[in-house]
Design a protein around this nucleic acid. Sequence first.
DNA 1: GGGCCTCGAGATCA
DNA 2: CTCGAGGCCC
Length: 689
Amino acid sequence: MSAPQIPDNASVRAAALRAAIEQHNHAYYVLDAPTINDAEYDCLFRELQELETQYPALYTSDSPTGRVGAPPLSKFLPYTHRQPMRSLNNAFNTAEVHAFDERVRDRLEAAGIISSGARVGYAVEPKFDGLAVNLCYERGVFVAGATRGDGTIGETVTANLRTIRSVPLRLLLNNAPALLEVRGEVLMRKQEFLHLNAAQHAAGKKLFANPRNAAAGSLRQLDSRVSAKRPLFFCAYGVGEGGNALACDTHASQLAWLRQAGFAIASQSTVVNGEVELLEAYQKIASMRDELPCEIDGVVYKVNDLAAQRALGYVSRAPRFAIAHKFPAEEARTRVLDIEVQVGRTGAITPVARLQPVFVGGVTVSSATLHNEGELRRKDVRIGDKVRVRRAGDVIPEVCAVLLDERPAGAPPFVMPVHCPECGSPVEKGPEEAVARCSGAMICPAQLRETLLHFASRRAMDIEGLGERLVGQLVEHGMALSPADLYRLHMSQLAGLERMGETSAKKVLTAITASKHRELARFVYALGIRDVGEATARDLARRYGSIEALRLADCESLQKTPDVGPVVAQSVYRFFHEPHTSGALDALLAVGVSPTGAPASDGAALPLVGKQLVLTGTLPHLTRNDAKALIESAGGKTTGSVSTKTDYVVVGADAGSKLETARQLGLTIIDEAGLYELLHTDAPPASGG
DNA sequence: GGGCCTCGAGATCA
DNA sequence: CTCGAGGCCC
């Protein structure tokens, strides 16, 4: 079956329609100045759709017809940002802004970039409350987009981003670099959020809590046709890879370039000089906050001069040249219904206020940690008190203060329990310690539950299916008194538990058995040694190579591990010499847990594990066999035909029907370069290798 | 911490 | 249908 011949006039017409439609999209969705009425727009759109249906080969990835969504994905694939997406440090008051400006001036003076006493030029823009994404343009065409993820690797949500009308599918400037990353925020306007919720309500569906969550939820749909119906908006605020090629020397000129290229840019963006003007700009934006179409949670300041930015550089994950000046957290008043104490994995006793649910900062808060006894005393929170609550750093709910004049008469001060509420063991607190701890160790059901959960968690032994609910039941029924007991569980024991049918039981037992051979670093982390987190566990595993060697180490030796000082060394030494903990370790080894000496995988070792790939066409540098070998050495499989189980289709020149099938199934299609990207290796030099 | 999406499987009812 | 679990976002 051969494709119909495409007449020249059809491809010319299709290109013209695409350009026209995108021009109108830009006018309508970015400039907010429609150039055509809906009927006329629909007419153009339908004509293009018909052309593309008649001649499928005419379809291009930058066609606006793709904006209606594509067939659902089975999952989002990881996406490695070419330049990491960093986060910003925060300033919560003017003193912190002052300190920021001072640091910037000192460094720039020292670098000879500004003279003493000179004011620094800053680009100022509102900080929109949405989701950061990265858009990748190749030769001016939108080819991929991803969420921020951990800053290095995010999730590919290209199909969903394509449905956002304010994301240009093709840049309007033709001087775009071969590869350009555009960073910005996916948002939902307040008004459109209200409309969406009204529609959700009318359809009897769940309401979204706030515009940010609605935007995030919309972007995480596997079916981009759902995303297409959500009123999302994209606002660009910067560039990543390829930024240097724009020949801009300031941040403001980069934004201007982006605007010319077809992106929406925050219209409140300005450039100011020095700290005083920064704060004026902040006040101005703050005063407009309620009238702005989108929610903002602060103002971002960036050193405007790019050379100065480079000179300032980065500290750990955040740039030194920028800061987010956050608005004060919204506060609300509510009642303390109860004060509970929670027992953590290490026995730490944490008082938690149960609150009359209250909507604050976009979410419903019903509990807030009171941290520890000292904090609780200082604030003197009592049951029945009316309190002011807020979300600290816009995340964790916090009781800021008690409204004393509304305290119910006779409300007694809260006293920390002297016995653990879960196991009755004495609560102990060292003179220097801030936190009180239950001394019950593994006798305490709470500590045991948390220990088991930590042991099974994804970053530790990664036992899938062993969640809160199951662990709770295991502890309650005395089926697990230590992690080692997990490996002695039987079908017959699990069978009686709630929501535990044969299938689930089998799965979890298989997962438990499979966890016997985890990398040493995971095992060391899973043990839950005080002061040993993931990073330290990795360092210890690397230095000692086996659990036997590690447990024999003395404090002096331990301290030769990177970032391990006397305190951590002491904790590790203690763990291996205390009869309790040492015994639990022996028990684990006895039931057959045998950590492998290999270093913890950082995810880069075998990037294609469990992936199915199909090769089609002729790749530029690799023979079919070479490509197959590469894929297999990375843990992936290759198959001959395309199906819904296929993860990637690698296309080369003269690809045939497989490519067409892959398109219809909405599969991820990559080329040879894309394959190398998946493999996390560089492409070989052009002349073989 | 709270909200969101997705999946699989158990619970429930026709 | 609901629930638990896992994962991701700020």
